[in-house]
Design a protein around this nucleic acid. Sequence first.
DNA 1: CCGTATCCTGCTGGATACTG
DNA 2: CAGTATCCAGCAGGATACGG
Lengths: 131, 131
Amino acid sequence: MGTRKEISELPPEADLARADSLAREIFSDVANKWAFLIIEFLGQGTMRFGELRDEIGGISHKMLTQNLRMLERNGLVRRTVHPTVPPRVEYTLTEAGEGLRLVVDGMCGWTQRYLGHIEAARSRFRDPVAG
Amino acid sequence: MGTRKEISELPPEADLARADSLAREIFSDVANKWAFLIIEFLGQGTMRFGELRDEIGGISHKMLTQNLRMLERNGLVRRTVHPTVPPRVEYTLTEAGEGLRLVVDGMCGWTQRYLGHIEAARSRFRDPVAG
DNA sequence: CCGTATCCTGCTGGATACTG
DNA sequence: CAGTATCCAGCAGGATACGG
Protein backbone atom coordinates (compact mmCIF):
# COMPACT_ATOMS: atom_id res chain seq x y z
CA MET A 1 0.00 0.00 0.00
CA GLY A 2 1.03 3.60 -0.46
CA THR A 3 3.05 5.96 1.64
CA ARG A 4 0.42 8.64 1.74
CA LYS A 5 -0.94 8.15 5.24
CA GLU A 6 0.07 5.94 8.08
CA ILE A 7 -3.40 4.60 8.56
CA SER A 8 -5.45 3.52 5.58
CA GLU A 9 -8.81 4.26 7.06
CA LEU A 10 -11.85 4.90 4.94
CA PRO A 11 -12.30 8.47 3.72
CA PRO A 12 -15.12 10.44 5.39
CA GLU A 13 -17.33 10.29 2.32
CA ALA A 14 -17.07 6.49 2.02
CA ASP A 15 -20.65 5.90 3.09
CA LEU A 16 -22.07 8.63 0.89
CA ALA A 17 -20.79 6.95 -2.23
CA ARG A 18 -23.92 4.93 -2.88
CA ALA A 19 -26.88 7.16 -3.55
CA ASP A 20 -29.26 4.65 -1.97
CA SER A 21 -27.37 4.05 1.28
CA LEU A 22 -28.90 4.92 4.64
CA ALA A 23 -26.08 7.33 5.44
CA ARG A 24 -26.70 9.16 2.20
CA GLU A 25 -30.40 9.35 2.92
CA ILE A 26 -29.87 10.83 6.38
CA PHE A 27 -27.29 13.22 4.99
CA SER A 28 -29.71 14.41 2.31
CA ASP A 29 -32.52 14.78 4.84
CA VAL A 30 -30.60 16.81 7.35
CA ALA A 31 -28.33 18.92 5.14
CA ASN A 32 -30.83 21.68 4.39
CA LYS A 33 -30.96 25.22 5.62
CA TRP A 34 -34.09 24.99 7.78
CA ALA A 35 -32.88 21.93 9.64
CA PHE A 36 -29.53 23.59 10.28
CA LEU A 37 -31.11 26.81 11.49
CA ILE A 38 -33.45 24.92 13.81
CA ILE A 39 -30.58 22.88 15.26
CA GLU A 40 -28.48 25.97 15.73
CA PHE A 41 -31.11 28.06 17.49
CA LEU A 42 -32.36 25.15 19.59
CA GLY A 43 -28.77 24.90 20.78
CA GLN A 44 -29.53 27.92 22.96
CA GLY A 45 -31.75 25.66 25.03
CA THR A 46 -35.25 24.22 25.18
CA MET A 47 -37.78 26.37 23.37
CA ARG A 48 -41.47 26.54 22.65
CA PHE A 49 -42.77 26.44 19.10
CA GLY A 50 -43.53 30.14 18.89
CA GLU A 51 -40.28 31.16 20.55
CA LEU A 52 -38.30 29.14 18.07
CA ARG A 53 -40.29 30.62 15.20
CA ASP A 54 -39.49 34.14 16.42
CA GLU A 55 -35.82 33.38 17.06
CA ILE A 56 -35.25 31.98 13.60
CA GLY A 57 -37.27 34.61 11.79
CA GLY A 58 -38.41 34.26 8.21
CA ILE A 59 -39.63 30.69 8.59
CA SER A 60 -43.27 29.86 7.98
CA HIS A 61 -45.41 27.92 10.42
CA LYS A 62 -45.61 25.08 7.92
CA MET A 63 -41.88 24.75 7.30
CA LEU A 64 -41.11 24.85 11.00
CA THR A 65 -43.65 22.12 11.78
CA GLN A 66 -42.51 19.99 8.88
CA ASN A 67 -38.83 20.19 9.72
CA LEU A 68 -39.40 19.69 13.44
CA ARG A 69 -41.29 16.47 12.64
CA MET A 70 -38.46 15.31 10.40
CA LEU A 71 -35.89 16.04 13.10
CA GLU A 72 -38.05 14.30 15.69
CA ARG A 73 -38.45 11.29 13.42
CA ASN A 74 -34.67 11.04 13.12
CA GLY A 75 -34.21 11.44 16.86
CA LEU A 76 -32.39 14.79 16.81
CA VAL A 77 -35.12 16.67 18.62
CA ARG A 78 -37.39 15.66 21.50
CA ARG A 79 -40.92 17.03 21.66
CA THR A 80 -42.63 17.49 25.02
CA VAL A 81 -46.31 18.35 25.32
CA HIS A 82 -47.56 19.89 28.55
CA PRO A 83 -51.29 19.16 28.83
CA THR A 84 -52.27 22.64 29.91
CA VAL A 85 -54.67 25.18 28.45
CA PRO A 86 -53.45 26.67 26.26
CA PRO A 87 -51.04 23.89 25.31
CA ARG A 88 -47.33 24.30 25.91
CA VAL A 89 -45.07 22.34 23.58
CA GLU A 90 -41.32 22.35 24.08
CA TYR A 91 -38.52 21.22 21.82
CA THR A 92 -35.08 20.09 22.98
CA LEU A 93 -31.99 18.73 21.26
CA THR A 94 -31.25 15.09 21.98
CA GLU A 95 -27.72 13.76 22.29
CA ALA A 96 -27.59 13.17 18.55
CA GLY A 97 -28.96 16.65 18.02
CA GLU A 98 -26.25 18.14 20.23
CA GLY A 99 -23.72 16.23 18.17
CA LEU A 100 -25.02 17.76 14.99
CA ARG A 101 -25.07 21.13 16.68
CA LEU A 102 -21.29 21.00 16.92
CA VAL A 103 -21.13 20.53 13.17
CA VAL A 104 -23.47 23.45 12.55
CA ASP A 105 -21.50 25.59 14.99
CA GLY A 106 -18.49 24.74 12.87
CA MET A 107 -20.29 26.00 9.83
CA CYS A 108 -21.17 29.24 11.62
CA GLY A 109 -17.50 29.69 12.43
CA TRP A 110 -16.59 28.95 8.83
CA THR A 111 -19.06 31.56 7.60
CA GLN A 112 -17.50 34.13 9.93
CA ARG A 113 -13.97 33.31 8.91
CA TYR A 114 -14.55 33.40 5.16
CA LEU A 115 -17.13 36.17 4.90
CA GLY A 116 -14.52 38.47 3.39
CA HIS A 117 -13.27 35.85 0.93
CA ILE A 118 -16.80 35.19 -0.20
CA GLU A 119 -17.71 38.82 -0.71
CA ALA A 120 -14.53 39.29 -2.73
CA ALA A 121 -15.26 36.22 -4.83
CA ARG A 122 -18.73 37.52 -5.54
CA SER A 123 -17.55 40.86 -6.90
CA ARG A 124 -14.86 39.09 -8.90
CA PHE A 125 -17.58 36.90 -10.36
CA ARG A 126 -19.69 39.89 -11.32
CA ASP A 127 -16.72 41.78 -12.79
CA PRO A 128 -13.87 39.42 -13.75
CA VAL A 129 -11.50 42.30 -14.63
CA ALA A 130 -11.47 44.30 -11.41
CA GLY A 131 -11.09 41.30 -9.09
CA MET B 1 -3.21 43.89 14.78
CA GLY B 2 -2.96 44.84 18.41
CA THR B 3 -4.70 43.56 21.48
CA ARG B 4 -8.21 43.21 20.20
CA LYS B 5 -10.53 41.47 22.62
CA GLU B 6 -11.83 38.10 21.55
CA ILE B 7 -15.34 38.34 20.21
CA SER B 8 -15.81 34.60 20.46
CA GLU B 9 -18.02 35.12 23.48
CA LEU B 10 -20.87 35.78 21.10
CA PRO B 11 -22.87 32.62 20.46
CA PRO B 12 -22.10 30.93 17.13
CA GLU B 13 -25.50 31.75 15.70
CA ALA B 14 -25.21 35.45 16.45
CA ASP B 15 -24.87 36.44 12.80
CA LEU B 16 -27.68 34.21 11.65
CA ALA B 17 -30.18 36.02 13.79
CA ARG B 18 -31.27 38.50 11.16
CA ALA B 19 -32.87 36.72 8.23
CA ASP B 20 -31.58 39.34 5.80
CA SER B 21 -27.93 39.34 6.91
CA LEU B 22 -25.13 38.34 4.57
CA ALA B 23 -24.06 35.50 6.85
CA ARG B 24 -27.57 34.11 6.82
CA GLU B 25 -27.73 34.36 3.04
CA ILE B 26 -24.46 32.47 2.58
CA PHE B 27 -25.54 29.92 5.14
CA SER B 28 -28.83 29.36 3.31
CA ASP B 29 -27.07 29.12 -0.05
CA VAL B 30 -24.49 26.59 0.99
CA ALA B 31 -26.40 24.42 3.48
CA ASN B 32 -28.06 22.12 0.96
CA LYS B 33 -27.39 18.52 0.13
CA TRP B 34 -25.99 18.95 -3.36
CA ALA B 35 -23.49 21.60 -2.31
CA PHE B 36 -22.37 19.43 0.60
CA LEU B 37 -21.98 16.35 -1.57
CA ILE B 38 -20.00 18.28 -4.16
CA ILE B 39 -17.70 19.75 -1.52
CA GLU B 40 -17.21 16.36 0.08
CA PHE B 41 -16.36 14.47 -3.10
CA LEU B 42 -14.22 17.29 -4.48
CA GLY B 43 -12.23 16.92 -1.28
CA GLN B 44 -10.72 13.80 -2.84
CA GLY B 45 -8.89 16.10 -5.23
CA THR B 46 -9.32 17.98 -8.48
CA MET B 47 -11.92 16.40 -10.75
CA ARG B 48 -13.43 16.82 -14.17
CA PHE B 49 -17.14 17.47 -14.57
CA GLY B 50 -18.00 13.95 -15.67
CA GLU B 51 -15.84 12.33 -13.02
CA LEU B 52 -17.54 14.32 -10.31
CA ARG B 53 -20.94 13.44 -11.73
CA ASP B 54 -20.06 9.74 -11.63
CA GLU B 55 -18.55 9.92 -8.15
CA ILE B 56 -21.57 11.61 -6.63
CA GLY B 57 -24.12 9.47 -8.43
CA GLY B 58 -27.79 10.35 -8.66
CA ILE B 59 -27.21 14.00 -9.54
CA SER B 60 -28.51 15.39 -12.81
CA HIS B 61 -26.35 17.31 -15.26
CA LYS B 62 -28.40 20.40 -14.57
CA MET B 63 -28.14 20.29 -10.77
CA LEU B 64 -24.42 19.69 -10.90
CA THR B 65 -23.83 22.63 -13.23
CA GLN B 66 -26.10 24.89 -11.24
CA ASN B 67 -24.51 24.10 -7.89
CA LEU B 68 -20.97 24.28 -9.25
CA ARG B 69 -21.73 27.78 -10.54
CA MET B 70 -23.10 28.78 -7.17
CA LEU B 71 -20.02 27.44 -5.40
CA GLU B 72 -17.76 29.17 -7.91
CA ARG B 73 -19.64 32.43 -7.44
CA ASN B 74 -19.05 32.19 -3.69
CA GLY B 75 -15.40 31.33 -4.18
CA LEU B 76 -15.51 27.80 -2.76
CA VAL B 77 -14.60 26.12 -6.02
CA ARG B 78 -12.19 27.11 -8.78
CA ARG B 79 -12.99 26.21 -12.38
CA THR B 80 -10.18 25.63 -14.86
CA VAL B 81 -10.84 25.24 -18.57
CA HIS B 82 -8.20 23.54 -20.70
CA PRO B 83 -8.69 24.73 -24.29
CA THR B 84 -8.34 21.31 -25.88
CA VAL B 85 -10.62 19.31 -28.11
CA PRO B 86 -12.65 17.90 -26.58
CA PRO B 87 -12.63 20.44 -23.75
CA ARG B 88 -11.30 19.47 -20.33
CA VAL B 89 -12.79 21.33 -17.39
CA GLU B 90 -11.47 20.77 -13.89
CA TYR B 91 -12.88 21.75 -10.53
CA THR B 92 -10.83 22.27 -7.37
CA LEU B 93 -11.65 23.39 -3.85
CA THR B 94 -10.29 26.80 -2.91
CA GLU B 95 -9.03 27.59 0.57
CA ALA B 96 -12.54 28.56 1.64
CA GLY B 97 -13.81 25.36 0.06
CA GLU B 98 -11.30 23.30 2.00
CA GLY B 99 -12.45 25.06 5.13
CA LEU B 100 -16.02 24.05 4.48
CA ARG B 101 -14.86 20.56 3.67
CA LEU B 102 -13.76 20.17 7.27
CA VAL B 103 -17.29 21.00 8.37
CA VAL B 104 -18.80 18.50 5.93
CA ASP B 105 -16.30 15.86 7.04
CA GLY B 106 -17.54 16.53 10.53
CA MET B 107 -21.06 15.86 9.39
CA CYS B 108 -19.97 12.58 7.76
CA GLY B 109 -18.43 11.57 11.06
CA TRP B 110 -21.59 12.55 12.88
CA THR B 111 -23.70 10.44 10.52
CA GLN B 112 -21.45 7.46 11.19
CA ARG B 113 -21.53 7.91 14.94
CA TYR B 114 -25.30 8.28 15.25
CA LEU B 115 -26.49 5.94 12.52
CA GLY B 116 -27.68 3.46 15.14
CA HIS B 117 -29.42 6.13 17.23
CA ILE B 118 -31.20 7.39 14.14
CA GLU B 119 -32.40 3.99 12.99
CA ALA B 120 -33.70 3.31 16.50
CA ALA B 121 -35.48 6.67 16.62
CA ARG B 122 -37.12 5.94 13.29
CA SER B 123 -38.63 2.66 14.40
CA ARG B 124 -39.71 4.24 17.66
CA PHE B 125 -41.43 6.94 15.63
CA ARG B 126 -43.24 4.39 13.49
CA ASP B 127 -44.28 2.30 16.47
CA PRO B 128 -44.22 4.33 19.72
CA VAL B 129 -44.99 1.29 21.91
CA ALA B 130 -42.39 -1.24 20.85
CA GLY B 131 -39.45 1.16 20.65
C1' DC C 1 -16.55 16.64 -23.15
C1' DC C 2 -18.85 20.48 -21.35
C1' DG C 3 -22.27 24.31 -21.33
C1' DT C 4 -26.65 26.39 -22.07
C1' DA C 5 -31.48 26.55 -23.20
C1' DT C 6 -36.12 24.82 -23.36
C1' DC C 7 -39.92 22.27 -22.01
C1' DC C 8 -42.79 20.24 -18.62
C1' DT C 9 -44.25 18.00 -14.29
C1' DG C 10 -44.59 17.62 -9.55
C1' DC C 11 -43.27 19.23 -5.42
C1' DT C 12 -42.06 23.15 -2.25
C1' DG C 13 -43.59 26.22 0.57
C1' DG C 14 -46.52 30.43 1.77
C1' DA C 15 -51.22 32.00 3.20
C1' DT C 16 -55.32 30.99 5.35
C1' DA C 17 -58.69 28.83 8.16
C1' DC C 18 -60.43 25.66 11.54
C1' DT C 19 -59.77 22.45 15.69
C1' DG C 20 -58.59 21.26 20.47
C1' DC D 1 -50.73 28.26 21.61
C1' DA D 2 -49.96 24.54 18.62
C1' DG D 3 -51.37 21.16 14.97
C1' DT D 4 -53.45 19.89 10.72
C1' DA D 5 -55.57 20.57 6.30
C1' DT D 6 -56.44 22.95 1.97
C1' DC D 7 -55.47 25.78 -1.81
C1' DC D 8 -52.42 27.29 -5.28
C1' DA D 9 -48.49 30.07 -7.35
C1' DG D 10 -43.97 29.34 -8.36
C1' DC D 11 -39.84 27.10 -8.60
C1' DA D 12 -37.06 22.84 -8.52
C1' DG D 13 -35.28 19.72 -11.10
C1' DG D 14 -35.33 15.83 -14.74
C1' DA D 15 -35.13 14.91 -19.81
C1' DT D 16 -33.78 16.35 -24.06
C1' DA D 17 -31.52 18.83 -27.72
C1' DC D 18 -28.07 21.50 -29.73
C1' DG D 19 -23.84 24.43 -29.89
C1' DG D 20 -18.68 25.12 -29.20
